[in-house]
Protein backbone atom coordinates (compact mmCIF):
# COMPACT_ATOMS: atom_id res chain seq x y z
CA UNK A 1 0.00 0.00 0.00
CA UNK A 2 2.72 2.38 1.03
CA UNK A 3 4.66 1.53 -2.08
CA UNK A 4 1.74 2.54 -4.27
CA UNK A 5 1.33 5.87 -2.53
CA UNK A 6 5.00 6.68 -2.99
CA UNK A 7 4.71 5.67 -6.59
CA UNK A 8 1.62 7.80 -7.18
CA UNK A 9 3.29 10.68 -5.46
CA UNK A 10 6.32 10.34 -7.71
CA UNK A 11 4.14 10.24 -10.81
CA UNK A 12 2.28 13.35 -9.67
CA UNK A 13 5.53 15.13 -8.88
CA UNK A 14 6.79 14.22 -12.36
CA UNK A 15 3.67 15.58 -14.04
CA UNK A 16 3.84 18.77 -11.97
CA UNK A 17 7.45 19.37 -12.96
CA UNK A 18 6.70 18.80 -16.64
CA UNK A 19 3.73 21.18 -16.59
CA UNK A 20 5.61 23.81 -14.58
CA UNK A 21 8.60 23.72 -16.93
CA UNK A 22 6.33 23.81 -19.96
CA UNK A 23 4.49 26.85 -18.62
CA UNK A 24 7.37 28.74 -17.07
CA UNK A 25 10.21 28.11 -19.51
CA UNK A 26 9.08 30.78 -22.01
CA UNK A 27 8.76 33.27 -19.18
CA UNK A 28 12.24 32.44 -17.99
CA UNK A 29 13.57 32.66 -21.52
CA UNK A 30 12.17 36.17 -21.89
CA UNK A 31 13.54 37.12 -18.49
CA UNK A 32 16.99 35.91 -19.48
CA UNK A 33 16.77 37.67 -22.84
CA UNK A 34 15.81 40.93 -21.19
CA UNK A 35 19.16 40.96 -19.38
CA UNK A 36 21.24 40.33 -22.49
CA UNK A 37 23.33 43.02 -24.11
CA UNK A 38 22.36 43.79 -27.75
CA UNK A 39 25.49 42.04 -29.08
CA UNK A 40 24.71 39.03 -26.96
CA UNK A 41 21.16 38.53 -28.28
CA UNK A 42 21.99 35.99 -30.95
CA UNK A 43 24.59 34.07 -29.03
CA UNK A 44 22.42 30.97 -29.23
CA UNK A 45 22.50 30.47 -25.49
CA UNK A 46 19.72 30.65 -23.00
CA UNK A 47 21.55 32.69 -20.40
CA UNK A 48 23.22 36.05 -21.10
CA UNK A 49 27.01 36.12 -21.06
CA UNK A 50 26.92 39.22 -18.92
CA UNK A 51 23.83 40.12 -16.92
CA UNK A 52 23.21 43.73 -17.84
CA UNK A 53 20.35 46.14 -17.24
CA UNK A 54 20.86 48.02 -20.47
CA UNK A 55 17.47 47.06 -21.91
CA UNK A 56 15.60 48.25 -18.85
CA UNK A 57 17.62 51.41 -18.95
CA UNK A 58 16.62 51.93 -22.54
CA UNK A 59 12.87 51.62 -22.01
CA UNK A 60 12.67 53.39 -18.65
CA UNK A 61 15.10 56.26 -19.05
CA UNK A 62 16.62 55.89 -22.54
CA UNK A 63 15.46 56.30 -26.14
CA UNK A 64 12.37 54.13 -25.87
CA UNK A 65 11.23 55.87 -22.71
CA UNK A 66 8.60 58.01 -24.42
CA UNK A 67 7.13 55.06 -26.23
CA UNK A 68 7.08 52.72 -23.27
CA UNK A 69 6.09 54.97 -20.38
CA UNK A 70 3.20 56.66 -22.20
CA UNK A 71 1.87 53.32 -23.36
CA UNK A 72 2.22 52.01 -19.83
CA UNK A 73 0.21 54.96 -18.59
CA UNK A 74 -2.41 54.30 -21.31
CA UNK A 75 -2.58 50.63 -20.39
CA UNK A 76 -3.03 51.28 -16.68
CA UNK A 77 -5.62 54.00 -17.21
CA UNK A 78 -7.70 52.23 -19.81
CA UNK A 79 -7.60 48.90 -18.01
CA UNK A 80 -8.56 50.33 -14.62
CA UNK A 81 -11.41 52.39 -16.03
CA UNK A 82 -12.87 49.56 -18.09
CA UNK A 83 -12.50 47.16 -15.16
CA UNK A 84 -14.29 49.54 -12.83
CA UNK A 85 -17.14 50.14 -15.27
CA UNK A 86 -17.45 46.43 -16.05
CA UNK A 87 -17.58 45.48 -12.37
CA UNK A 88 -20.17 48.09 -11.46
CA UNK A 89 -22.42 47.27 -14.42
CA UNK A 90 -21.97 43.51 -14.02
CA UNK A 91 -22.74 43.71 -10.28
CA UNK A 92 -26.02 45.50 -10.92
CA UNK A 93 -26.89 43.17 -13.76
CA UNK A 94 -25.97 39.98 -11.91
CA UNK A 95 -27.83 41.18 -8.81
CA UNK A 96 -30.97 41.60 -10.89
CA UNK A 97 -30.49 38.24 -12.54
CA UNK A 98 -29.96 36.43 -9.26
CA UNK A 99 -32.63 38.20 -7.24
CA UNK A 100 -35.44 39.26 -9.51
CA UNK A 101 -37.72 37.43 -11.84
CA UNK A 102 -38.25 39.48 -14.94
CA UNK A 103 -39.00 38.71 -18.58
CA UNK A 104 -35.90 38.65 -20.74
CA UNK A 105 -33.64 37.37 -17.96
CA UNK A 106 -32.58 34.43 -20.10
CA UNK A 107 -32.10 36.77 -23.06
CA UNK A 108 -29.62 38.90 -21.14
CA UNK A 109 -27.54 35.87 -20.22
CA UNK A 110 -27.66 34.38 -23.70
CA UNK A 111 -26.70 37.69 -25.29
CA UNK A 112 -23.80 38.04 -22.90
CA UNK A 113 -22.65 34.57 -23.81
CA UNK A 114 -23.07 35.23 -27.54
CA UNK A 115 -21.03 38.42 -27.31
CA UNK A 116 -18.23 36.71 -25.46
CA UNK A 117 -17.89 33.89 -28.00
CA UNK A 118 -17.93 36.27 -30.96
CA UNK A 119 -14.45 36.31 -32.53
CA UNK A 120 -12.77 39.64 -31.79
CA UNK A 121 -10.86 39.73 -35.05
CA UNK A 122 -14.04 39.77 -37.14
CA UNK A 123 -15.38 42.97 -35.59
CA UNK A 124 -12.12 44.86 -35.53
CA UNK A 125 -12.32 46.07 -39.13
CA UNK A 126 -15.87 47.44 -39.03
CA UNK A 127 -15.16 48.91 -35.63
CA UNK A 128 -12.07 50.61 -37.07
CA UNK A 129 -14.22 52.28 -39.73
CA UNK A 130 -16.95 53.32 -37.33
CA UNK A 131 -14.47 54.71 -34.80
CA UNK A 132 -12.69 56.68 -37.47
CA UNK A 133 -15.96 58.22 -38.67
CA UNK A 134 -17.28 59.22 -35.27
CA UNK A 135 -13.93 60.28 -33.91
CA UNK A 136 -13.32 57.63 -31.32
CA UNK A 137 -10.30 56.29 -33.16
CA UNK A 138 -7.09 56.53 -31.17
CA UNK A 139 -8.76 57.66 -27.94
CA UNK A 140 -9.02 56.06 -24.50
CA UNK A 141 -12.80 55.83 -24.84
CA UNK A 142 -12.33 54.10 -28.18
CA UNK A 143 -10.56 51.26 -26.36
CA UNK A 144 -12.61 51.25 -23.17
CA UNK A 145 -15.83 50.48 -25.05
CA UNK A 146 -14.52 47.40 -26.89
CA UNK A 147 -12.84 46.23 -23.68
CA UNK A 148 -16.22 46.38 -21.95
CA UNK A 149 -17.57 44.00 -24.58
CA UNK A 150 -14.83 41.57 -23.57
CA UNK A 151 -15.04 41.97 -19.80
CA UNK A 152 -18.78 42.48 -19.23
CA UNK A 153 -20.06 39.07 -20.38
CA UNK A 154 -17.65 37.06 -18.28
CA UNK A 155 -18.19 39.39 -15.32
CA UNK A 156 -21.94 38.99 -15.55
CA UNK A 157 -21.69 35.24 -15.73
CA UNK A 158 -19.24 34.90 -12.86
CA UNK A 159 -21.12 37.29 -10.61
CA UNK A 160 -24.57 35.89 -11.40
CA UNK A 161 -23.33 32.41 -10.48
CA UNK A 162 -21.79 33.81 -7.32
CA UNK A 163 -24.80 35.85 -6.26
CA UNK A 164 -27.10 32.89 -6.76
CA UNK A 165 -25.49 31.04 -3.89
CA UNK A 166 -25.73 33.86 -1.39
CA UNK A 167 -28.54 33.00 1.03
CA UNK A 168 -30.85 35.99 0.70
CA UNK A 169 -32.59 34.91 3.86
CA UNK A 170 -29.72 36.73 5.58
CA UNK A 171 -31.02 40.00 4.28
CA UNK A 172 -34.44 39.26 5.71
CA UNK A 173 -32.93 38.10 8.99
CA UNK A 174 -31.04 41.37 9.23
CA UNK A 175 -34.22 43.34 8.56
CA UNK A 176 -36.03 41.48 11.32
CA UNK A 177 -33.03 42.13 13.56
CA UNK A 178 -33.64 45.84 13.10
CA UNK A 179 -31.74 46.83 9.98
CA UNK A 180 -32.98 49.14 7.27
CA UNK A 181 -32.95 47.77 3.74
CA UNK A 182 -29.66 49.53 3.09
CA UNK A 183 -28.07 48.35 6.34
CA UNK A 184 -29.20 44.80 5.62
CA UNK A 185 -27.56 44.96 2.22
CA UNK A 186 -24.36 46.53 3.52
CA UNK A 187 -23.88 44.44 6.65
CA UNK A 188 -25.19 41.07 5.56
CA UNK A 189 -24.89 40.86 1.79
CA UNK A 190 -21.89 43.00 0.82
CA UNK A 191 -19.39 41.11 3.03
CA UNK A 192 -20.51 37.88 1.38
CA UNK A 193 -20.54 39.30 -2.13
CA UNK A 194 -17.18 41.08 -1.83
CA UNK A 195 -14.91 38.09 -2.63
CA UNK A 196 -16.95 37.36 -5.74
CA UNK A 197 -16.82 40.95 -6.93
CA UNK A 198 -13.10 41.00 -6.23
CA UNK A 199 -12.44 37.85 -8.23
CA UNK A 200 -14.47 39.22 -11.11
CA UNK A 201 -12.54 42.49 -11.03
CA UNK A 202 -9.23 40.65 -11.27
CA UNK A 203 -10.43 38.51 -14.17
CA UNK A 204 -11.71 41.60 -15.98
CA UNK A 205 -8.42 43.38 -15.32
CA UNK A 206 -6.42 40.55 -16.89
CA UNK A 207 -8.58 40.44 -19.97
CA UNK A 208 -8.26 44.16 -20.63
CA UNK A 209 -4.59 44.25 -19.68
CA UNK A 210 -3.63 41.44 -22.04
CA UNK A 211 -5.59 42.57 -25.07
CA UNK A 212 -3.56 43.02 -28.26
CA UNK A 213 -5.92 42.98 -31.24
CA UNK A 214 -7.98 46.03 -30.27
CA UNK A 215 -4.92 47.80 -28.95
CA UNK A 216 -3.01 47.56 -32.22
CA UNK A 217 -5.97 48.15 -34.56
CA UNK A 218 -7.79 51.04 -32.95
CA UNK A 219 -4.82 53.24 -32.11
CA UNK A 220 -2.25 55.02 -34.21
CA UNK A 221 -0.29 57.26 -31.86
CA UNK A 222 0.84 57.43 -28.29
CA UNK A 223 -2.46 59.04 -27.37
CA UNK A 224 -4.08 55.74 -26.55
CA UNK A 225 -1.72 52.92 -27.50
CA UNK A 226 -1.50 50.30 -24.74
CA UNK A 227 1.70 48.38 -23.90
CA UNK A 228 1.01 45.10 -25.77
CA UNK A 229 0.58 47.12 -28.99
CA UNK A 230 3.47 49.47 -28.24
CA UNK A 231 5.90 46.56 -27.99
CA UNK A 232 5.61 46.12 -31.74
CA UNK A 233 6.88 49.64 -32.31
CA UNK A 234 10.15 49.30 -30.47
CA UNK A 235 13.18 49.78 -32.65
CA UNK A 236 16.76 48.84 -32.07
CA UNK A 237 19.53 51.40 -31.52
CA UNK A 238 20.28 51.22 -35.23
CA UNK A 239 18.35 49.66 -38.05
CA UNK A 240 20.68 46.67 -37.94
CA UNK A 241 19.89 45.89 -34.35
CA UNK A 242 16.76 44.01 -33.45
CA UNK A 243 14.80 45.39 -30.48
CA UNK A 244 14.35 41.93 -28.93
CA UNK A 245 16.04 42.94 -25.69
CA UNK A 246 13.89 46.00 -25.15
CA UNK A 247 10.73 44.10 -25.99
CA UNK A 248 11.67 41.38 -23.51
CA UNK A 249 12.30 43.93 -20.79
CA UNK A 250 8.96 45.64 -21.47
CA UNK A 251 7.20 42.28 -21.48
CA UNK A 252 8.68 41.46 -18.09
CA UNK A 253 7.59 44.82 -16.69
CA UNK A 254 3.98 44.43 -17.83
CA UNK A 255 3.87 40.92 -16.44
CA UNK A 256 4.82 42.15 -12.98
CA UNK A 257 1.43 43.68 -12.02
CA UNK A 258 -0.35 40.52 -13.11
CA UNK A 259 1.96 38.30 -11.08
CA UNK A 260 1.70 40.60 -8.08
CA UNK A 261 -2.10 40.64 -8.29
CA UNK A 262 -2.33 36.88 -8.42
CA UNK A 263 0.21 36.27 -5.66
CA UNK A 264 -1.14 39.00 -3.42
CA UNK A 265 -4.78 38.11 -3.74
CA UNK A 266 -4.43 34.37 -4.21
CA UNK A 267 -6.51 33.80 -1.09
CA UNK A 268 -9.32 36.07 -2.15
CA UNK A 269 -9.39 34.60 -5.63
CA UNK A 270 -9.56 31.05 -4.35
CA UNK A 271 -12.12 31.88 -1.68
CA UNK A 272 -14.09 33.90 -4.19
CA UNK A 273 -14.20 30.94 -6.51
CA UNK A 274 -14.99 28.38 -3.85
CA UNK A 275 -16.75 30.09 -0.98
CA UNK A 276 -20.17 28.67 -0.31
CA UNK A 277 -22.61 29.94 2.23
CA UNK A 278 -23.27 28.43 5.62
CA UNK A 279 -25.71 25.67 5.00
CA UNK A 280 -27.91 24.09 7.61
Amino acid sequence: MKKTTTKTRLIWAGITVVVAVYALFPVFSILATSFKEPSDLSNGKLLPTNWSGVNYEQILVGDAQGLFLTSLRNSIGITLISTAIAVVLATLCAYAIARLDFPGKKLVLTTALAVSIFPVISIVTPLFNVWRTIGLYDTWLGLIIPYLSLTLPISIWTLAAFFRQIPWELEQAAQVDGATAWQAFRKAIVPLAAPGVFTTAIIAFFIAWNDFVYGISLTSTEAARPVPAALAFFTGASQFESPTGAISAAAIIVTIPVVLLVLGFQRQIVSGLTQGAVKG
Partner: peptide
Protein backbone atom coordinates in the same frame (compact mmCIF):
# COMPACT_ATOMS: atom_id res chain seq x y z
CA UNK B 1 -41.20 47.67 8.22
CA UNK B 2 -39.96 44.47 9.90
CA UNK B 3 -37.48 46.38 12.03
CA UNK B 4 -40.19 48.54 13.58
CA UNK B 5 -42.23 45.58 14.75
CA UNK B 6 -39.75 44.51 17.46
CA UNK B 7 -40.11 40.84 16.76
CA UNK B 8 -37.34 38.26 16.71
CA UNK B 9 -37.35 35.41 14.27
CA UNK B 10 -35.50 32.10 14.08
CA UNK B 11 -35.23 30.91 10.50
CA UNK B 12 -35.40 27.34 9.28
CA UNK B 13 -31.78 27.30 8.13
CA UNK B 14 -30.79 29.71 10.89
CA UNK B 15 -29.70 32.58 8.60
CA UNK B 16 -26.46 33.13 10.51
CA UNK B 17 -24.01 35.65 9.13
CA UNK B 18 -21.10 33.49 7.93
CA UNK B 19 -18.56 36.31 8.03
CA UNK B 20 -19.20 37.16 11.69
CA UNK B 21 -18.15 35.27 14.80
CA UNK B 22 -20.74 33.71 17.06
CA UNK B 23 -20.37 36.65 19.41
CA UNK B 24 -20.97 39.18 16.65
CA UNK B 25 -23.85 37.14 15.28
CA UNK B 26 -25.62 37.30 18.63
CA UNK B 27 -24.66 40.94 19.10
CA UNK B 28 -25.87 41.89 15.60
Amino acid sequence: APRDRHLAMVFQNYALYPHLTVFENIAF
